[in-house]
Write a protein that binds this DNA or RNA. Structure first.
Lengths: 359, 359
DNA sequence: CTGAAAGCGCTTACAG
DNA sequence: CTGAAAGCGCTTACAG
């Protein structure tokens, strides 16, 4: 097996210059038909399959690919398997198709992330991430990028949902139904045991969430405050969205705050875990306990009971982010609205506590 | 904005040779600590973010990515959206994760396919395709590849399910239940109107299917022949798996072969379309009509009624194909078994026709 | 441990 | 229309 044949080999064998050989493949109009035929025949004879994409790349060609780095240290398999992330990728994929680009799903695994960001062979990438390290690596590269669900300043493209507004709507809905005793089910970024944050009088912060989750907490606080309730009176459980962690979190929630009548979950995944645990305990949802989710992912409507939730335009987020990459204009920060979707997992509390405050 | 800074700029500014600068980044152990520190400081000062991956590529570095080209001219968005293909990608993704590689989803759109095959920046790729053109393009490239669901000779890596055996099992199951009047619902590769192939005495071939579908037809024929029935006596409808084509096909099937008691569908998608159309017509499945699918894709178990089908190890196919790429040994041809999964869409025919042959 | 040089495979002005 | 040359950004022997 000899060395792979290059354009220069073809040019030499055909007796033309490298430039002419290159033109035969890239601007055939510039080459005299006889010469072109000669070069092509020689290429065929030598088994040359056309210019190597890598040589081309070096001269500034496009990679014709967009990279997507999933949030939360997801490896590629999780990214492909996650219903929520898939909806997002669907939007990315649509715009890739419009622009004749492929879609590179990059591993978010901790040890690979930074390497991938600096080395992925793409024309632009989308970061489902917020970490400083990732952001720094991305800025180093000349390749355009956009970060999802984080505001990263006026220099950085970002697309995010209005988490605060959406969360406010969720809490308002429950307040309107008459609920006064809430618990919050939040997101832990790392796969680790669920965390219990009891009610407190001092200001409380989430331990391990995404920035978007902190926004949601603010949104809950906004709505509760209007009803004279402090968000600090509600216990907060934080759990990683994958089994078994999220299930542990649901158990913890139900175990430790039996007086709660309504649960504010920061993702549908978390809400569905509560639904499942409630069913195990024969707690009727929504009669005995109301649960509201966030995202309106594919599975929300198929939940039992169908999940009332805050819908965010997940696919549209993917489309917008990808368009920003292809349009390559000035940095943009896009905020998308979230809206309440009424289904069957919320109802008035069994014994209305209207007028009574606190937990 | 000045030209992007290169390694040679850093070397010059630091007063060292290009080689030493390169070593600082790639084999730091070879560089004296003071010099290394100097180069690193200079790099930082100049805003140099480390060696450009493209220059590296040219020197033989890996792309750290595996490409997947979906079957049937699917654009990227369809590939991401298809439950069946997703299961396959899950297997690919798992092995990519094990090997620190990303997953490139390439558009199978007709006009892009060949270009993508010759230009995708990957270390290996998987072709859900059989076309000569694609195969030729793939062979030209030095990059390893494997084709799915086609036997392409001893020189080409291939992974496929035993379509013939699986189809045989499907038909046997229905024969065992007492069915004698069959219709076949097959796959059309291009999105176009459904095709009706009436029973015939001469040998009949599928018009527009994949090679695997031809194998399935042979499998049906094997089993039917053993029961004294010619596959040519069964009408064949061919339809593209997407709506509305597949729905048209289901309608056509039910309209034109009312005497059929059992339908052999070559994919779950096709089987589910029959289920839906039957429900619309208030035809009870399985009492009045039996339907068996193929694949056991995610949705088969959730069908109404749950679909009896032939399961193929879709995710495992993805794993195996990807491992072949990373192992880079001699060409391999792998055939995987398919097995019957009994659920609720098949039953004995209403008025058994045991002993009566033909349609 | 460090430097000078060749080379990876190609494209693009620039002359002619 | 064609050729000679420079350059894309880097790595890798090879001397020293």
């Amino acid at each position: 097996m000899k060395r792979t044949v290059r354009l220069s080999d073809v040019a030499a064998a055909a007796g033309v210059s490298l430039g002419t050989a290159s033109n035969t493949f890239n601007r055939p109009g510039l080459v005299r038909p006889e010469v072109r035929a000669l070069v092509e025949a020689t290429a065929r004879r030598l088994g040359y399959s056309g210019p190597d994409p890598i040589g081309r790349l070096l001269m500034g060609a496009k990679a014709h690919a967009i990279g997507v780095l999933p949030p939360g240290d997801m490896p590629v398999a999780h990214a492909v398997g996650s219903p929520f992330f898939r909806e997002f990728m669907l939007g990315v994929a649509e715009v890739c198709d419009e622009n004749d680009a492929s879609l590179l799903v990059i591993s978010g695994a901790e040890n690979r992330k930074t390497w991938a960001i600096t080395n992925a062979l793409v024309d632009g990438f989308i970061l489902g991430h917020l970490e400083e390290a990732a952001l720094v690596a991305a800025r180093q590269r000349k390749t355009p990028f956009v970060v999802m669900d984080v505001e990263a300043g006026p220099e950085v493209n970002s697309v995010r949902v209005d988490g605060r507004g959406g969360a406010r709507r969720a809490a308002e809905h429950l307040l309107d139904l008459g609920h006064r005793r809430f618990a919050i089910f939040s997101v832990l970024r790392k796969p680790a045991g669920a965390i219990w944050n009891p009610p407190t009088t001092s200001e409380r912060r989430l331990t391990g969430g995404f920035p978007l989750d902190h926004e949601k907490l603010l949104g809950y606080a906004d709505a509760l405050a209007l009803a004279g309730i402090s968000v600090n009176d509600a216990p907060v459980v934080e759990a990683h969205p994958l089994s078994p962690w999220v299930d542990d979190g649901a158990r913890m929630l139900l175990d430790r705050s039996p007086e709660t009548t309504a649960i504010l979950a920061m993702s549908d995944r978390h809400a569905v875990a509560v639904l499942a645990e409630a069913k195990r305990r024969s707690i009727n949802i929504p009669k005995e306990l109301s649960v509201i989710g966030f995202d309106d992912a594919e599975n929300a409507i198929f939940a039992d009971p169908p999940l009332t939730t805050i819908a965010q335009p997940t696919t549209e987020k993917g489309r917008i982010a990808t368009r920003i990459l292809f349009e390559a204009g000035l940095p943009r920060q896009v905020v998308l609205p979230a809206k309440l979707v009424l289904r069957a997992s919320t109802a008035p509390p069994r014994s209305p506590n209207i007028g009574s405050h606190g937990v």
